[in-house]
Design a protein around this nucleic acid. Structure first.
Lengths: 110, 110
DNA sequence: AATATTAATCGTATATTTGCGATGAACAAT
DNA sequence: ATTGTTCATCGCAAATATACGATTAATATT
């Protein structure tokens, strides 16, 4: 991709929020996260029953969630237990709620 | 892209949340939204001063936000006034806050 | 030692995203 | 009528994302 001159640096917060949002930007990953956050505790790979995807594809989605910092995988061969990364989950929660804090329900110009 | 057999239908809410998240998944679009939501009222294309991007690229990002339903563009040639789509903004706010409602700060298994 | 189970990774195909410059459309001002 | 301003759209290139099957790695079971 052609990139503008010197790759611009957005602010850390902006970058971080975009990164979380991007990770949430696929229905399969939303399902995974909902699954993990409903589970009172952690969980392994029964995701295959829930998702209409091949094992390798699910693994790829898990990897992306891990890279975004939203989940943690605890290896326990031959199984792996996945959990919400609670620290970053809290950060994400906060960043999104800040973004949406404005309440436009009353005043609006359009 | 190869797609699994018959394109699977995720639930409407899941699909909708993923769509909003995807639209938020780029720093430039976060900046645009912050700009619009800070502005007490609407606003046109001074975004070019804020973003390190070409006019056509910014226009593209605006289009994506429009298609995701997060903003509205009111044509007023030769200018265009952009605003937050307050109705969908509220819906997004609600969907994200539901996703993040679990509070893991205390109990956690990992 | 051989087999089974689980999940990551590799290789590959295709789709989508991001970005730019160039062009076009809509109107205002001259 | 001509020119200027603002923004959308087109055409293109490069990067990333999505998906799959096949393979590999790690361990438990037989």
């Amino acid at each position: 991709m052609k990139r503008s001159a010197k790759d611009f640096d957005y602010s850390g917060e902006t970058e971080q929020l975009a990164k979380f949002a991007k990770a949430l930007g696929h229905p399969a990953r939303i399902i995974i996260l909902k699954h993990l956050s409903n589970q009172s505790c952690c969980f392994t790979g029964d995701l295959l029953d829930v998702l209409p995807l091949a094992q390798s594809t699910v693994s790829q989605h898990l990897k992306e969630l891990k890279e975004a910092g939203l989940i943690i995988g605890e290896v326990n061969p031959p199984k792996v237990k996945y959990c919400i990364n609670t620290k970053n989950w809290g950060i994400a929660q906060q960043l999104f709620s800040t973004l949406f804090k404005e309440d436009f329900s009353k005043i609006n110009c359009c």
